[in-house]
Design a protein around this nucleic acid. Structure first.
Lengths: 175, 175
DNA sequence: TATTGTTATACTCTATAACTATA
DNA sequence: TATAGTTATAGAGTATAACAATA
């Protein structure tokens, strides 16, 4: 329900004397959550699937040779238990299959089935149209501009620890 | 654990022939999820609280006269049941209080307690430092630039329905 | 012993729907 | 009858930890 309209939104959580960075973040978050929420809703209503499942398929589509559960865990940035669950669902739907790993009998190579590949490509095409629609608020030039700016932010964020930076623990201290 | 490093990340889910909008979205999502995850982790480890609780306090801080549960629900863009739960927690912690609404005996006016106000201000000050740290990848000018660009995107997104736009339902049809 | 993957469990976040008490 | 708030339930999404099989 709070999805249908945005009379108020996350950005309204600004405090009175707000710093530039906070304002920027709240606006960015409002946009990102809105886009993500639209995508989740549409994946559910149009394709009866979820974002994690879609993401896992996208990973496999790029690697026809398949990926192990551990590799999927790394790429998707979630823990192994989750990958098992999502893979179970997709396997039950006939979208992916676990095949024995050639060199390691503990591991699997997870691959798209032909049906899974077809279905993913259908979804990816529609997904791309959604993206075009959602970002139509920006011209091609503006999109490039933000894309370039985000590269810098992303690089910076990569160097930030989830723990506060007060006296940042060095890797050596973390033994 | 996948929080600690980003060797791979959401952006790696790009498909081979990717449109500009998709690339942009994946990069934006990677940044937004990273920032949000850092904030959630730090709120938990530093203040033993969560983002929804922090957001609710932020709403109340701006309205010393208090807000009803329904108003909180609108501002926070979540359903009523959630607001009840979060408010229950904060009330148990002594951060907020429900007082009878002057004109409607069904409703409450939720307000910060003095202790809640002090604690929130402490958290807000630290939160602002986190934002400054996280967005230090951009100069003040770049921040302004993105902030302005996001205004346009946000406005555009406000007009987009969560349901696919194929043949967009008009409000009249939604009777 | 270390690693791959699974299982079991739990917690956060959110939505829906039935319910109550007022209005 | 409609509205404010609560309760109960469900499901997505994620993490942790104990475990089995294999390396």
């Amino acid at each position: 329900m709070p999805d249908e309209d945005l009379p108020y939104d996350l950005e309204s959580r600004v405090i009175d004397d707000h710093h530039q960075a906070i304002k920027l973040w709240l606006r960015m978050l409002a946009c990102a959550t809105r886009v993500e929420s639209v995508v989740r809703n549409r994946l559910r209503s149009e394709f009866a699937t979820t974002l994690p499942r879609f993401d896992l398929l996208a990973q496999l589509e790029r690697k026809p040779a398949g990926l192990t559960m551990g590799e999927l865990s790394q790429h998707l940035m979630v823990t192994g238990g989750n990958v098992t669950g999502v893979t179970d669902q997709l396997e039950a739907e006939g979208m992916v299959k676990r095949t024995p790993h050639p060199h390691d009998r503990r591991a699997f190579s997870v691959q798209l089935t032909p049906a899974g590949k077809r279905q993913f490509r259908r979804m990816a095409a529609v997904h791309e149209q959604w993206m075009i629609e959602l970002f139509a608020g920006w011209s091609a030039e503006e999109k490039s501009q933000v894309y370039a700016l985000l590269a810098g932010l992303k690089k910076h964020l990569g160097g930030i620890d989830a723990a506060p930076a007060k006296r940042s623990k060095t890797k050596k201290e973390m033994t």
